[in-house]
Simulated scan of single mutants.
Amino acid sequence: MKIVVVSDSHGNDWDLLAIRERHLQEADLFIHCGDSELLDDDAAMQGYLSVCGNCDYRSQAPLKRVESLAHDVTLFMTHGHTYGVKYSLQKLYYQALEVGANLVCYGHSHYVGAEMIEGILFMNPGSLSFPRNTREKTYAIITVSDRAFEVAYLEGGTGETLIRQTFKR
């Protein structure tokens, strides 16, 4: 299973459309972790399962979602601003435990990063508009198998792979 994860696009509809087109044949799920700043029915948001971020003033999307996926994956997705993710993952960790998630996708900080904490993968795809810990504007693809999560970070405009990480399940 392949999941394309974007966040913090802040009006960048061009890259959202290009990413969806680029990965349409291989991806099983497209998710947006908030701060698109686009209307829910905008063409660039079609096909993305999304949550509302702190800059999504006109969105009707929920603040969080829990989805059951293949390979016994329970996905928890949120933007992260209501969990203080710029300071710590502790609140997000407790929420993941509460809902039984083993994959957590979030945004808000604009920082690319993934870490496994007690069997739960926490992954932030960075930002498609205003990256903070990379020069490149980024998104991620998570490849899920029964044995591992493989996270690839890609450059938003070109789709070039920048970083790859594998986390055993």
Score class of each variant (00 low, 15 high):
78 T>Y: 05
156 G>C: 07
104 V>T: 11
128 L>W: 06
91 K>Q: 14
165 Q>K: 15
80 G>A: 08
162 L>Q: 00
119 G>M: 10
25 Q>Y: 04
113 G>W: 03
140 A>H: 04
38 L>R: 07
49 L>M: 13
110 H>M: 06
32 H>R: 03
116 M>A: 03
76 F>P: 06
11 G>I: 11
93 Y>A: 02
124 N>E: 07
133 N>H: 13
9 S>C: 10
80 G>N: 04
99 V>Y: 04
101 A>I: 12
58 R>T: 12
75 L>R: 12
68 S>Q: 15
72 D>E: 13
54 N>W: 05
63 L>E: 14
161 T>I: 10
153 Y>D: 00
159 G>P: 04
140 A>G: 08
133 N>F: 12
7 S>L: 01
144 V>M: 08
119 G>T: 12
103 L>D: 09
10 H>R: 11
154 L>N: 03
47 G>P: 11
61 A>E: 02
28 D>S: 14
56 D>H: 14
66 V>E: 13
116 M>C: 07
161 T>K: 15
48 Y>S: 00
45 M>I: 09
63 L>P: 00
122 F>Q: 05
64 K>H: 10
114 A>W: 01
73 V>F: 03
115 E>P: 07
134 T>V: 02
136 E>W: 03
87 Y>H: 10
147 R>L: 14
7 S>V: 03
160 E>Q: 15
83 Y>W: 12
61 A>C: 03
40 D>W: 03
150 E>S: 14
48 Y>Q: 03
46 Q>Y: 02
149 F>M: 08
30 F>E: 08
50 S>W: 00
86 K>C: 02
85 V>C: 09
167 F>W: 12
44 A>T: 04
93 Y>Q: 12
18 A>E: 15
165 Q>W: 08
12 N>C: 02
120 I>M: 09
31 I>V: 15
133 N>D: 15
86 K>F: 00
32 H>T: 04
126 G>L: 09
134 T>I: 00
144 V>S: 02
127 S>Q: 10
122 F>C: 06
78 T>D: 00
109 S>Y: 06
88 S>C: 09
74 T>K: 13
52 C>R: 15
44 A>P: 01
157 G>A: 12
18 A>L: 10
160 E>N: 12
164 R>Y: 00
78 T>S: 11
65 R>Q: 13
125 P>I: 10
155 E>R: 14
96 A>P: 06
152 A>I: 10
49 L>K: 00
103 L>K: 13
106 Y>Q: 06
97 L>D: 01
119 G>A: 09
76 F>L: 15
68 S>A: 14
165 Q>E: 15
164 R>V: 15
156 G>N: 07
106 Y>K: 08
86 K>W: 01
156 G>A: 15
10 H>P: 06
165 Q>R: 15
30 F>A: 04
115 E>H: 05
96 A>C: 09
50 S>P: 00
83 Y>E: 15
73 V>C: 11
107 G>V: 08
70 A>I: 06
96 A>S: 13
46 Q>A: 12
51 V>E: 02
14 W>F: 14
53 G>E: 05
17 L>K: 15
39 L>E: 13
139 Y>H: 14
119 G>D: 11
135 R>D: 11
5 V>D: 01
31 I>P: 02
25 Q>I: 04
13 D>A: 09
28 D>P: 02
52 C>M: 14
70 A>H: 03
40 D>C: 06
79 H>Q: 07
84 G>F: 11
19 I>Y: 02
154 L>K: 14
3 I>T: 04
